[in-house]
């Protein structure tokens, strides 16, 4: 890519991006790029060796994220980002495993994996970009599409009730649950950093504008208009009751950090429980994995 004339310094995020793949495929005014730049900023603030970080994505617009980040990154099959990440984490507990994917991938086809990873408190960090629609395949109705919203498979409006994702993962036992929009860049960066530092299943939902499908089909303007909508209609309520976090079509969006608690992770629970049951015969998870 040709740069500006003169001696221009390098963009500070270029060391963590695969520059041969940039410019990315996301549309103008899409919010996923902003979520990625917040993630890179959080990684730069987060003091952890970069060769011990792995990023896993599924399918969809947000599934491309793993391909653009210059770390050990994996683009898995549809919905299977979390099982892949679980395997990575269990095979090498030293890794910091991050799942960065979309709502259509994590909550619909990967929904079962999401709830079970949260239930077991698997030590992974999940960032879910929620743009309310299946954007890559042509704007079909997703389980997160708000009631009344138009999509290509609900041309008269959606009559279904959408998922309240923080309630879903919170009720399954996630240790960290937060929601921000793509406009809350500083808070989102800090929240991502907290989620990375948190042991156990940490989850951050990022509400991002989809200009080409969600905004166009619902006549909401461009992604910039959706950003202005987030600016006027998002309410920060830390620790809000999870039942109150339903998203209704073009109504206020409650954002904030809702859960930050401590619970033994999968490997800790393994060691505690089996150590007690097996006594001398017990081999700790980490030792067993090293030996294998």
């Amino acid at each position: 890519m040709k740069k500006n004339a003169g001696n221009v310094p390098e963009h500070p995020m270029e060391n963590l991006l695969r520059m041969d793949r940039i410019p990315h495929i996301w549309c103008s005014t899409c919010g996923i790029g902003t979520a990625v730049s917040c993630f890179i900023q959080a990684l730069q603030n987060f003091d952890y060796p970069l060769d011990k970080i792995a990023v896993v994505s599924g399918i969809g617009c947000s599934g491309r994220i793993a391909g653009y980040i210059k770390l050990d990154s994996f683009h898995t099959t549809h919905g299977r980002a979390i099982p892949f990440a679980t395997g990575l984490k269990l095979a090498n507990p030293e890794l910091k495993v991050i799942v960065f994917s979309g709502d259509g991938d994590l909550v619909s086809i990967g929904g079962n994996h999401l709830i079970h990873a949260a239930r077991r408190n698997m030590d992974i960090t999940v960032f879910c970009v929620n743009n309310f629609i299946y954007a890559m395949t042509g704007g079909q109705c997703a389980p997160t599409t708000p009631t009344d919203a138009n999509s290509s498979t609900s041309p008269y409006g959606n009559f279904d009730h959408p998922f309240n994702i923080p309630l879903l993962v919170g009720s399954c036992g996630a240790t960290y649950v937060a929601r921000w929009t793509a406009l809350h860049i500083r808070r989102l960066t800090r929240s991502m950093q907290e989620a990375l530092e948190k042991p156990g299943f940490s989850f951050v939902e990022i509400i991002a504008p989809c200009s080409t499908l969600y905004a166009r089909r619902n006549r909401l303007g461009t992604g910039l208009d959706l950003m202005k909508f987030y600016h006027d209609n998002s309410v920060i309520q830390h620790g809000a009751p999870l039942e109150s976090l339903d998203i209704q079509f073009q109504k206020k969006i409650i954002v904030g950090k809702f859960i930050d608690k401590k619970r033994p992770t999968f490997l800790e629970a393994w060691d505690q429980y089996l150590g007690k049951k097996l006594g001398d015969k017990f081999i700790s998870a980490e030792k067993g994995i090293r030996a294998a």
Partner: peptide, 17 residues
């Protein structure tokens, strides 16, 4: 301010905010 002009998709986020 450094702008990589040819990478921009003109979304206007920076101008607005």
């Amino acid at each position: 301010i450094h702008i990589v002009r040819d990478r921009c998709k003109g979304c206007g986020f920076c101008v607005e905010y």
